[in-house]
Amino acid sequence: MAEAQLQQFLEKVRQLNGFIDLSEIDPGLRQELTDCSTHQAVVALARSRGFEIGQRWGEKTPAAPDPPNLLTQACPAAGEERSEVLLKLSSWRLERIHSCQACSPPDFWYDQAEHEWVVLLQGSAQIQLEGEDRPRELCQGDSLLISAHRRHRLVSTDPDPGSIWLALFWHQACEG
């Protein structure tokens, strides 16, 4: 195998691993993946989340589209949340999350293996951290650091045009 082919193979494995990691921490994505009935549907779903898993060895990488405006994309349906991977390296990923009247299911708590830092770009939201009496009220410009395995849940987000977040995820210990 030539070095160029090896690099293409390794990049495909990285993309697959990133998509798998995301599906394990995002119950909505996991359900969408479960609902896929063809390989092409899985490839399209991965692409919609910023992962290119359908490329075969020797194919040229498609040209990247212009980056979207973070605030002007269509709002998801009420009760839904849409995540999009904007940037990803082996040690971290940056996502845009658009929520519309979204909340975690009753008795559901996120318990992520990654640290997460979020900043609210638009709207407002309430996040409940386990062990705290009241949800945290966040509005435009507020940020929150959620350490790995700190259980938390989304209590509420705004109706249309929704709440828009930037979320940075990473595995290594926080330095401070």
Rank of each mutant, 00 (worst) to 15 (best):
A41E: 15
E137A: 07
E80K: 11
G79K: 07
G131R: 04
R56G: 11
Q40K: 15
A46L: 00
L121F: 07
W117G: 00
D35Y: 10
W92R: 11
S83L: 10
P62D: 07
Q101L: 07
G131F: 03
I53E: 01
A63G: 05
P105Y: 05
D133R: 09
S91C: 06
R47T: 13
K60H: 13
A46T: 00
E32M: 13
G58Y: 10
E81Y: 12
Q31K: 15
F108H: 15
R93T: 04
V42Y: 07
L87R: 05
L138T: 03
S124M: 00
F108W: 14
E130A: 13
P105D: 10
P76D: 00
S99P: 04
Q55N: 13
P135V: 05
S104K: 07
C75Q: 00
V42K: 09
R47G: 08
R49I: 09
R47E: 14
F51Q: 01
E130T: 04
S37G: 14
L45C: 11
E132L: 08
R49M: 12
A125S: 14
P105Q: 13
Q128V: 06
G50K: 00
S83T: 08
P67S: 05
C100R: 01
A74W: 01
T38H: 15
R56F: 14
L87N: 01
E81I: 15
L129Y: 05
R47D: 11
